[in-house]
């Protein structure tokens, strides 16, 4: 089962992460003066807790059989009582997500280099072109407002410093 495999991989990842964190916690240097409880104690306790939970999680995922199904029913019943959020659709549109992730990374990269206004406009338009290009004119107007106009509103009225980038000469 695919879902099962996903959770199994996740449990291994969590074990590795917890173990790394725990190992890191042991390497926290002792302070110069001695204390009742050094800076490493709390992280070590947290790390041990995480590692044991990750192991329990892995154990839950790797043991099979009918018992699990019975347990899942109990879990679902509980979920209804406490109003847990619905599980999300597993069929994700990986291509769209990859695009969005790339756009966000570019946005972070360009935020200071190109300035807020230009980078926002570019990312906004890229998103629009990729996701839905039926209302280009309207969306372009919105993009201009949320990039250039918003930049001036923020920097003039709210006195929030946003990076200007190459548009520095337009600053007041």
């Amino acid at each position: 089962m695919k879902e099962k495999r996903e959770e199994r991989i996740a449990s291994v990842v969590l074990i590795v992460f917890s173990a790394t964190y725990l190992a890191g916690a042991f390497y926290i240097p002792m302070p110069v003066f001695k204390q009742q409880l050094g800076p490493g104690a709390f992280p070590i306790a947290t790390g041990i807790g995480m590692l044991s939970l990750a192991c329990i999680y892995a154990w839950q995922q790797f043991r099979g059989g009918a018992k699990v199904n019975e347990e899942n029913e109990e879990v679902e019943k509980r979920a209804v009582i406490i109003g847990a959020e619905e599980k999300i659709e597993k069929k994700a549109d990986l291509k769209a997500m990859g695009f969005m992730l790339a756009a966000m990374l570019f946005y972070a990269f360009a935020f200071e280099r190109l300035g807020y206004a230009i980078s926002t406009f570019v990312v906004f338009m890229a998103g629009v072109l990729y996701l839905d290009r039926r209302h280009l004119v309207r969306d372009a107007v919105i993009a201009v407002i949320s990039s250039f106009v918003l930049y001036y509103i923020f920097s003039i009225f709210l006195r929030v410093n946003l990076p200007a980038g190459p548009l520095k000469f337009l600053e007041f």
């Binding site: 969005m100 972070a108 807020y116 990312v123 906004f124 998103g127 629009v128 996701l131 839905d132 969306d139």
Partner: peptide, 15 residues
């Protein structure tokens, strides 16, 4: 539209 909403969320997060 949802896609505009998503772009706005992204923009405000960065801002």
């Amino acid at each position: 539209p949802l896609y505009l909403l998503l772009m706005f969320i992204t923009m405000f997060s960065f801002l």
